[in-house]
């Protein structure tokens, strides 16, 4: 695991650090105070003291693609199992796990069965899911929602409060339009606006969905058509953390008090934006290095300090 520590007091230093992290993308504890990120190495002695009063933590896993069986990963079940073990056995046990979609590769019932079995066998805490586009093939997600949905609203989106933080799970992989990107749709946006309306601006928000909620690379479909509308509801809050999957790599962006993070896959990496002919599996990786590209994300909440500390952890 790589470690780094940076002075991020100034906005310039912070942006520079973000640029570095977008490229290196591994092994740093992120501490957010009032929308400003601070970095701490995971094993340089800071990590333990960076969030000593953390009230709880949770882990994000993403893009397990159960059913994929090609290079560079012939055993996506095994690597998902490894990631779940890492997620479950953090220093402090996470309160829950968020899976940000593409549980399966082809939405097949036996693939969903395997996901459920692996999560159950790992001893993971309560796990919440949002679908990726691979989970809604052929049936608009009926099988996914039946097995893994929260069943709060007809559209499958949901929210909950956990120890002072408001969490929102959004669906942006259905009703996609020809030539478009991810899509939230007017019904979901109306629900989101109403869901947030009664919250005070000091409530920390965590918003999660499969496809990036900012336009990371449109020609590869890495974005959401109507995410800008959602952002107008989020920007009044002092601390907003947006967690996405889909791109199989760590990418970050800061926009006011909103920080966007995409996650590693537990199955296989994809190329950096625009590198190569398309966003398929990255196959030409150095032999034996796959685990450097796979991993999980731990998020710690510190009560009162309005902070979320984010740590990226590769499998190796």
């Amino acid at each position: 695991m790589d470690h780094s520590s940076n002075d991020t007091e100034s906005p310039e230093g912070r942006r520079g650090f973000l640029r570095c992290m977008a490229m290196a993308g591994a092994g740093t504890l992120w501490l957010m105070k009032g929308g400003v990120l601070q970095a701490h190495g995971l094993a340089d002695g800071n990590a333990g003291t960076a969030a000593p009063d953390a009230t709880f933590s949770f882990v994000q896993v993403s893009d397990s693609h159960i059913g994929f069986h090609k290079e560079p990963n012939m055993d996506v079940a095994g690597s998902f199992r490894d990631c779940l073990a890492r997620a479950t056995h953090q220093r402090s046990r996470p309160d829950f796990i968020l899976h940000t979609g593409d549980l399966t590769h082809l939405s097949r019932p036996e693939e969903f069965d395997t996901v459920a079995q692996l999560v159950r066998d790992s001893g993971a805490p309560h796990t919440l899911y949002v679908p990726g586009e691979h989970d809604v093939i052929g049936d608009n997600g009926a099988e996914f929602f039946k097995r893994f949905g929260e069943k709060q609203a007809d559209g499958g989106w949901y929210s909950f409060d956990h120890r002072g933080v408001h969490f929102v799970g959004l669906i942006n992989v259905l009703n996609l339009k020809a030539g478009g990107l991810g899509f939230l749709g007017p019904d979901q946006l109306a629900w989101l606006k109403k869901d947030l309306a009664s919250l005070s601006a000091s409530t920390p928000l965590v918003v999660f969905a499969h496809m990036p909620l900012w336009n990371l690379y449109e020609s590869w479909g890495w974005g959401t058509d109507d995410s800008a509308e959602a952002m107008t509801y989020l920007k009044r809050f002092g601390s907003v953390t947006v967690l996405n999957g889909h791109v199989h790599q760590v990418q970050q962006k800061v926009e006011g008090t909103v920080t966007f993070h995409t996650a590693r896959s537990t199955a296989y990496p994809q190329p950096a934006p625009g590198v190569g002919p398309g966003p398929g599996p990255l196959k030409d990786i150095v032999a034996g290095s796959l685990k450097h590209y796979l991993g999980v994300r731990e998020v710690r909440h510190v009560r009162g300090a309005q902070t979320l500390a984010i740590a990226e952890e590769a499998l190796a």
Binding site: E133, H134, V136, K177, A178, G179, G180, L181, W220, G221
Partner: peptide
């Protein structure tokens, strides 16, 4: 007949 990929809608 215009068509697209419903899970990668940039493909038209």
């Amino acid at each position: 007949y215009t068509y697209y990929c419903s899970i990668h809608p940039m493909m038209v």
